[in-house]
């Protein structure tokens, strides 16, 4: 069971998650400091490690819309948080799978900051309100990448199989 550390609205853009002005920073070890940088208070809490691993960011529709910058995923992965949103923009979803950031699509989810959620195999249980919501299953093809531990090990295996 994990706590919702922030509940966001619809169309949270990659500029919001990781502002463009920090794009020259690319290393996953360095990107976490800029997570939600312009949400000053939240950024400070993340940096101060105020949240236990597995804490949850809740989003509305179209989470991660905008640019293809992968920093928007590595910055969140660096804080060991999970994203549960009603829907997720295409490139952000693919990047998350490629990098191993936990993302869950849950179209009817209702959750507020401070709620306790339990993510099961195919549902999300809001322990605070007692309500249960269905997840949208990720396409099967993506499972291969997740099972391999991300796109890098997956590609490496494919490369070795060819060699």
């Amino acid at each position: 069971m994990s706590k919702v550390i922030i509940a966001l609205g619809n169309d949270i853009s990659t500029d919001d998650i990781y502002p463009g002005r920090f794009m020259a920073t690319v290393l996953p070890t360095e990107t976490p400091q800029f997570a939600f940088f312009d949400r000053t208070e939240f950024n400070a809490q993340l940096k101060a490690k105020a949240f236990p691993p597995g804490s949850i960011i809740v989003g509305g529709e179209n989470f991660g819309c905008g640019s293809s910058r992968e920093q928007a995923c590595s910055t969140l992965k660096g804080h060991d948080v999970a994203v549960v949103a009603k829907s997720i923009a295409r490139i952000f979803l693919q990047n998350s799978i490629n990098l191993g950031l936990q993302v869950v699509i849950c179209p009817t989810l209702e959750a507020c900051e401070g709620d306790d959620l339990e993510i099961t195999a195919d549902q999300v249980v809001n322990k605070t309100t007692g309500k249960i919501y269905d997840q949208v299953k990720l396409p099967a093809a993506r499972k291969g990448i997740m099972d391999a531990g991300g796109l890098i090990p997956y590609t490496r295996a494919r490369l070795m199989a060819r060699a």
Binding site: S68, I91, Q94, L151
Partner: peptide
């Protein structure tokens, strides 16, 4: 279409996009 940097590294390595629906 747009992809992330890791996916591009995979394309550079394999010459295919591995997972297009």
């Amino acid at each position: 279409f747009g992809i992330g940097a890791t996916e591009m590294a995979s394309v550079w390595s394999l010459g295919v996009a591995v997972n297009i629906e």
